[in-house]
Simulated scan of single mutants.
Amino acid sequence: MKYEQALIECGTVIEAKEDQALVKAHILGRETDWLPILQQANEFKRHYTPPRIGQQVVILMGRYVLGSIFNKTCREPVANTTEDVTVYEDGTEIRYDSKTHTLTLKALDALKIETNQSVSITTQNATVNASAVKVEASEIELKGGSGDVVVNGISLVNHTHPQNAGNHYGGGASTGAAQ
């Protein structure tokens, strides 16, 4: 009996050459040759999602893997109709909600931003919540209008120093606020 090639078929990945974006798939009792996986690839941008054995794929004319489909073992990420969501196998998430104009990055471990030039953040309000903050720079400049910096309840602008009895000003006096 001759097999008629369908225009579109669904299969399951049984082998993967991740470094070449090629897979073999199982379709209704038969194994395909190595098939290329459709990816975003041109000189402007290259995006690669590595295939996984067991993922269900859509195959065009027995020659090209068009992409994966959600199934019982690979469910859709929880989202709403205004969110674009990417969830990685370790739980890391990138979400953009076009209704609230909110971009959320959720990294389970480290989040690194690297550049050879500069990083600029422009916003109305910024909050950093951390158990420790470390800033290393050869020069640090803080500008804040008429504001103040308060550390452990001590004002940088309005703090005073008590004079000790051994200095030439005499004992018991306090210095004025910072100038």
Rank of each mutant, 00 (worst) to 15 (best):
M61P: 00
L66T: 06
T82H: 13
Y48Q: 10
T81P: 07
M61T: 09
T49N: 13
R52N: 15
T86H: 11
L60W: 06
T73Q: 15
G91M: 03
G62K: 07
T81N: 14
I69P: 06
T82P: 01
R63N: 05
Q56S: 11
V78H: 07
V87M: 12
I59W: 01
T82W: 01
V65I: 15
D90A: 08
K72C: 00
T86W: 03
V57R: 05
E76S: 14
K72I: 00
V85Q: 03
P77S: 05
P51R: 14
L60D: 02
N80Y: 03
L66D: 04
Y64D: 02
E76V: 13
V87A: 08
E89C: 03
T82I: 01
G91D: 03
K72N: 03
E83K: 11
G67A: 09
P51G: 12
A79G: 06
V58F: 00
R75T: 13
A79P: 01
S68Y: 04
R52H: 12
M61D: 14
G54Y: 11
R52A: 10
H47T: 06
D90I: 01
T49W: 03
T92L: 01
Q56M: 13
T92R: 10
E89V: 10
P77R: 09
V58R: 06
Y48W: 10
N80M: 04
T73Y: 08
L60Q: 09
V78F: 03
N71A: 05
I59V: 11
G91L: 05
V87E: 14
I69L: 15
D84W: 02
P77I: 06
E83F: 01
T73I: 04
T49R: 14
T86D: 07
I69Q: 10
I53F: 10
V85I: 11
P77H: 06
V87N: 04
K72A: 03
E76Q: 15
G67W: 06
P77Q: 07
E83Q: 15
T81I: 08
G67N: 09
R75A: 10
N80K: 08
C74S: 15
E76L: 14
V65C: 08
Q56E: 15
Y88A: 10
Q55A: 07
T81R: 14
V85E: 02
